[in-house]
Design a protein around this nucleic acid. Sequence first.
DNA 1: ACCGACATATTATATGATTATTCTTCTTAA
DNA 2: TTAAGAAGAATAATCATATAATATGTCGGT
Lengths: 247, 247
Amino acid sequence: MALPIIPPDRSLTYGLVESLGQLIVTGAYDTKPFPTEGELSRQHGTSRSVTREAVKMLTAKGLLQARPRQGTRVTPEARWNLLDPDVLRWLLERKFSLQLLAEFSEMRLAIEPAAAALAASRADHAAIGRIRDGLERMKAAGHGEDEPVAADIAFHTAVLAATGNRFYAQLDALINTALRISIRFTNRIKGRAAGIARHEEVLDAIAAGDPERAALAMRALVQEVLALIGTASAQTGAARKAARRAG
Amino acid sequence: MALPIIPPDRSLTYGLVESLGQLIVTGAYDTKPFPTEGELSRQHGTSRSVTREAVKMLTAKGLLQARPRQGTRVTPEARWNLLDPDVLRWLLERKFSLQLLAEFSEMRLAIEPAAAALAASRADHAAIGRIRDGLERMKAAGHGEDEPVAADIAFHTAVLAATGNRFYAQLDALINTALRISIRFTNRIKGRAAGIARHEEVLDAIAAGDPERAALAMRALVQEVLALIGTASAQTGAARKAARRAG
DNA sequence: ACCGACATATTATATGATTATTCTTCTTAA
DNA sequence: TTAAGAAGAATAATCATATAATATGTCGGT
């Protein structure tokens, strides 16, 4: 299943949603008040209809709330819907932090091993085939015959889908986003973070119908990612300290 | 056409979002095409502005997609944002199924033990205090001095918050919804599903800073819920079979 | 100091007109 | 006959403007 992360088109409304979403998550309105509808329309050169519809979409994602006479306000960050793919994408694109990525990976560490276990106990032949396809793509990518990140994502997506659980399946959009963007920002993580061998272990366990082994293999795989984030974080921390000493 | 059950809580727009959201998840538009803007406005007696803004909000939640000349369509169910509290609520309120509840609990089974473990390794005094407050409320509810469901929710919410991980914390809105609504539908589950003793074990382990024990205790707790759903499901399945035999 | 009436700013709603997009149908040429 | 292209039509997207509803603050009176 292809996952359109990018909005259907680039209409004025969706463009404004993008712009405002990114502005909001960066904290651009933490100090100054959020503009009124009229103000927004003027600033972005859009009619009030477009402005209002964009604000309504951001309200649906938990980023804004509006009341007459009181104006539109940015919702406290704790109530943003982080599990909305757009919101997560804006945060990772515009306010990237290893901290956020670590928190997300920490959730993956709970979800994905469980997903692998479920897949091992339930996946039918076709579902296992799709996981195998993902692995084949990773191998092909190793020879430069496919896109490594896309192949990796395909593998994890196939495992999530093989659980037969709609909630697990939903997470693939988020993992997709996180993987793509984290690689854009931290080249440290892109390397050969989680080798093909590890992925193969996961597939083998699922194909063998061994939930426990599948969970362990997947856990090892995600843990490796988390560890890489940890070291990257420590290194930037050290770099900051060094900079302070030098400055 | 049977229209809104829930009255506009605030405004025409939000009321329409509710009505349409509920209609969509029930599959009311699986056979017939989704109405055009003008049609919707006529059916619900709202202006086009209100209609369009409601459609935009539902689009933001992944339930609809609109294109000129092509009209507005219901998105395939697989792409609905189940992790949006509103969407989950509509589904559980309007298209309740033990299957869906089981899938959600299956996800809890992955998340909550991990959350308990994180809480055990990280929670500070204040966070533990909030978990304890939840437990106290449950005890009070045992004496009829508090609302049992609200107390249970408070406990789980406090654990999720104690992880210090924003993604875990986000899930509390979903668990909140699922708990409240599942109890409204299946009185089998409301009983003394997960006793106070089990919750106390979780708190003890977290307070003691023992991640492993916290995870096991929480796992047992959620597993109990899942088992109850399983038996309820088996029973309704048996009831259906019996009905078929009788009919 | 409190209370209520009133002014005011801002979102909410309504309506009509225009534009852009794309699906359908018809036409035309090979 | 078929394929390509042009014209038409349906629908959402956008714009513009007007009115209503609703909080919030202000001011006068007690």
